[in-house]
């Protein structure tokens, strides 16, 4: 039997999995972006709670970050996937639906990745907020800026400037975490490779292709992050 080579596999020919792999790559990026965005929103509120909340909100935020950074991501994905399915099934029964209803894997995955990365981003934003000089905020008060204007024009951009390197780290973690979402059956890059490996009997080739695509995504997005860091720190005097 003539075994297809790696080049055949990534091509779009009769033996090619190129289109399927491209679609799966887009799915992986989408999961990572959705998870990262959810995490960023949680991170902003978490940091806010930790910085200026009372002892109750600070306690809740502290509990959240401790727990979510101390347990495996896979467990959180299982919780959302199976827990979500159980909840949806229970709700379905209320409306007279019969049997088991699955929770959409994409949603479960994005939420799980978002909630774990939210714990990391809380700490990133909190650290970045602490790095903003109080003099800058005092200057804004002295200029007569209102609270919301101060937040929009001074605090948010400066915090973001300090947060970008940390957010870049979280993004890389999120991208790799998105591979775990394959356990929910979402056809992202790893799941597609498993399917390909199963139907061609060439697991090594498919997982090498998947690894190469992950490397490419993380390298390209790492470069973009560096560019944005440059842009956001263009006002900083060096040396």
């Amino acid at each position: 039997m003539n075994q297809p080579t790696i080049l055949d596999l990534i091509g779009t020919g009769p033996n090619g999995w190129g289109m399927a792999l491209a679609a799966a790559t887009i799915m992986t990026v989408l999961i990572a972006i959705a998870g990262f965005a959810i995490g960023a929103v949680i991170g902003v509120f978490g940091a806010w709670a930790k910085v200026s909340g009372g002892w109750v909100t600070r306690g809740i935020a502290g509990f959240y970050t401790t727990v979510l950074r101390g347990i495996p991501d896979l467990l959180v994905i299982y919780l959302f996937y199976f827990g979500g399915s159980a909840a949806v099934t229970a709700i379905g029964r209320l409306f007279g639906a019969e049997g088991f209803i699955g929770f959409p894997g994409f949603l479960a995955g994005a939420l799980a990745v978002g909630i774990t990365s939210g714990a990391q981003q809380t700490e990133v934003f909190r650290g970045a907020y602490r790095a903003v000089h109080s003099g800058e905020l005092e200057a804004a008060i002295a200029c007569g800026m209102s609270r919301s204007l101060r937040f929009r024009r001074i605090l948010a951009p400066l915090t973001l400037r300090h947060a970008i390197p940390g957010m870049g780290n979280v993004w890389q973690v999120v991208l790799k975490e998105s591979a775990l979402v394959s356990v929910t059956g979402v056809v992202e890059l790893l799941r597609q490779s498993q399917i390909g490996a199963g139907s061609t009997g060439l697991p090594f080739d498919f997982y090498v292709i998947a690894a190469a695509i992950y490397l490419a995504i993380s390298t390209v997005s790492g470069g973009l992050l560096q560019l944005s860091e440059k842009r956001f720190t263009r006002g900083v005097r060096r040396g």
Partner: peptide
């Protein structure tokens, strides 16, 4: 560092 651990395990 650039690839997911799960891919390495499967590989």
């Amino acid at each position: 560092r650039g690839t997911p651990l799960l891919v390495q395990i499967f590989l």
